[in-house]
Design a protein around this nucleic acid. Sequence first.
RNA 1: GGACAGGUGGGUGAGUGGUUAAAGCCAACAGACUGUAAAUCUGUCCCUCCCUGCGAGGUACGAAGGUUCGAAUCCUUCCCUGUCCA
Length: 396
Amino acid sequence: MSIDEQLSILKKGLADLIREADLRERLIQSEKSGRPLRVKAGFDPTAPDLHLGHTVLLRKMKHFQDLGHIPIFVIGDSTALIGDPTGRNITRPPMTAEEIAANAETYKTQVFKILDPARTEVRFNSEWLAQLRFEDMVRLCSKYTVARIMERDDFTKRYREGAAISMHELLYPLAQGYDSVALACDVEMGGTDQRFNLLVGRELQRDFGQAPQIVATVPLLEGTDGVEKMSKSKGNYIGITEPPKVMFRKVMQISDDLMWRYYELLTDATLQEIAAMRASDQPMQHKMALASRIIADYYSEQAASQARSDFDREVRHGDVPSDIETASVAPEASGNLAKLLVSLNMADSRTDAERKIKAGAAEVDGEKHRSMNLELQPGRSYLLHLGKKWKRIVVG
RNA sequence: GGACAGGUGGGUGAGUGGUUAAAGCCAACAGACUGUAAAUCUGUCCCUCCCUGCGAGGUACGAAGGUUCGAAUCCUUCCCUGUCCA
């Protein structure tokens, strides 16, 4: 494949590429020398589950991998001690070592749903960061000035607003930049919000006598609300390990406009194909196709079609779901429906359950049930439905 | 170390002694409507208990004490944040 072709694959969907000429140069060198490029992306092990927002980046790394280069997946176990201040206006609470270890493990397995494990490097940045002594830290800090660090949006903003900025947060960009030095990266990738951190890497590499890495950023994927970027903590995410059915439902819940964005960033559909779909008057069909496509990526075609038919039946026609869990309930649970729903995890609290029952959200055996009272007969089974939750119970 | 300002429910933000479990807005949840979504409308949005009622009780306005019949509102100490001065 020609360098131009390679470049155009790699450039597709990128938000920033600093700088394109450098990347071209490196691709040429790599081809000549047979040395693959080292393409790094760092992840904070803060959320235990990867979601579609992360996959925009991972898919791009896969493109590099497919062209013979080496993705380096850096798990920021040391930098997690700081907590990336990106996009934050408050200081993050630090995580415990146990949490970090557990989360990192989950990341590792999930990331290989996209990348080929045999040709991926997975590294923890504690490997080199934990080695640094105080003198090393001081030396590292001396390479950057306060004014330059404060150029970062988040810091400027927080500073201007009189919000707290702790000293250790200023170290984050330096630590991340040092990762690139330690790994001798050729390319570092991240979301557009990572731009600053990625650029710091270039400067530090220069200071350490390395060629500055190429910085490639991908757009941030909006979450299911269509407004904020997808994030676990905002609850607007679609996790790649969520059951197919849940994924399908969540994809269907995005707005029609957002769907085109998802097509662009989460599938290999070409821009022409997307434009054609967009011109048609079948948004729902295309959305269902999108959901199926995404599920097929992380599960299988079969799982996708199953999820699709479940959605058809359960959501569109309002039928009873096919895979309701059955729980057995002691006869003593008879009497109070709210209590029962809480014990079955169908409501957050008893007060919550009562509210929903009063609002007419509860059904027993398909009948709306507005009374708090539910007498259970031993041996019988009941079908409970509250909002999106269903459960079959057997008494006895 | 000194002076000053401030800390309210998921977010924002009212409220400066008494129908205040705490306005409004946003988010969220449930219901209706619907072709998925959106939009719209209705209701809800701390917890527990029961005789499920515009019911009873318990917690809650950084923390702990105090004043008062009564405090988010006043006082004291502490913690935290910011600004200015050293």
